[in-house]
Design a protein around this nucleic acid. Structure first.
Length: 290
DNA sequence: AACTCGAACAACCGCCTAACT
DNA sequence: GAGTTAGGCGGTTGTTCGAGT
């Protein structure tokens, strides 16, 4: 893009883990200014990091609205289903998981779900036991079948899937997360993510609701790969989904509440934060969602 | 107590694409 | 149209920590 304003002097870039001070600098800067150009962020924020590194840190760790901690059963199934269908398209898979990042999904898959799939295939006398889930020759159908099997068997205890044997470090990680160790199974779905993903919770029934989305409308519907017979139902359209949150609903309330912030902070900031990111604080302050 | 091993996850690297000069 | 660069993505590596010996 050749952004002249982003030209930066030679710096001895820091590497490795981020210190709390660095996190604070980046967070403060981002919340105050947003980013017009990532390569300029470390300079302006007073960080000896590459812009790329700042971007990653912000997206994967500091960004408001991130849901950290345990993956729910629904999230797990979504990952497995989408991985079977899309392959290792982590960013696309993460789009369907409110508050999750592609990196987090990828790590979860590599450290746990992949083994789970392999084990399930291995225990299946009629299945393709020796094939890796990542194998390019692997039949997508076989993988999908395995997923259905896993979803019902739960032969492997996911890392931190229950609170009965939490290690101190795990507890620390939970507390560091956005939801401060709240019951993972009942995390509120971030509102903004409702707008950007096809999966929401039906407020009345508590079941999952799916709506068609721009990114899946041009190929096959997401519901094709979701477990049949589940509590998920298909909404007619995204507009139908949103209509429940119209001007008089949550969406309108959000708009109203966000307007002053948008005016104060400018469009740049508004672009920076998705509605979902902002909604976390709204949810906390006003119990808008639950 | 010291060491090894593995799990979990944060962060980096390299490639690709799109936008800009 | 070619060259350059930012941003995005997926693969891989590095770090930390707990469990086992």
């Amino acid at each position: 893009m050749g952004c002249r304003t982003c030209e930066t002097p030679k710096v001895n870039y820091r590497k490795g883990l981020w210190s709390p001070e660095e996190d604070q600098k980046l967070r403060d800067y981002m919340l105050k200014h947003g980013h017009s150009c990532w390569s300029a962020v470390p300079v302006k924020a007073g960080l000896q990091r590459k812009g790329k590194s700042c971007r990653l840190r912000w997206i994967n760790y500091l960004r408001p609205g991130l849901k950290r901690g345990f993956f729910s059963q629904e999230e797990e199934e979504t990952i497995m289903n989408l991985q079977a269908k899309l392959g290792n398209k982590w960013s696309r898979i993460a789009m369907h998981l409110p508050g999750r990042t592609d990196n987090e999904v990828k790590n979860y898959w590599n450290s746990y779900l992949k083994k789970k799939v392999i084990n399930a295939q291995g225990s299946d006398p009629h299945g393709s036991a020796t094939k890796s889930p990542d194998s390019t020759n692997q039949s997508q159908v076989t993988h999908a079948e395995t997923i259905y099997k896993i979803s019902s068997s739960e032969s492997i205890e996911p890392p931190g899937s229950s609170t009965r044997d939490l290690s101190p470090s795990m507890m620390h990680r939970m507390e560091f997360g956005s939801f401060k160790g709240a019951s993972h199974q009942h995390f509120p779905k971030v509102f903004a993510d409702w707008l950007s993903v096809d999966q929401v919770i039906d407020q009345s029934s508590g079941s999952f609701v799916h709506a068609n989305t721009p990114w899946n409308s041009n190929n096959s519907n997401i519901d094709e790969v979701l477990k049949p017979g589940s509590s998920q139902v298909v909404a007619d359209s995204k507009s139908d989904l949103l209509s429940g949150y119209g001007d008089s609903g949550i969406y309108g309330e959000l708009q109203a509440q966000l307007e002053p912030a948008s005016q104060t902070l400018g469009d740049e900031f508004f672009d920076l934060l998705s509605l979902g990111e902002i909604s976390v604080s709204l949810d906390t302050n006003h119990d808008v969602l639950f």
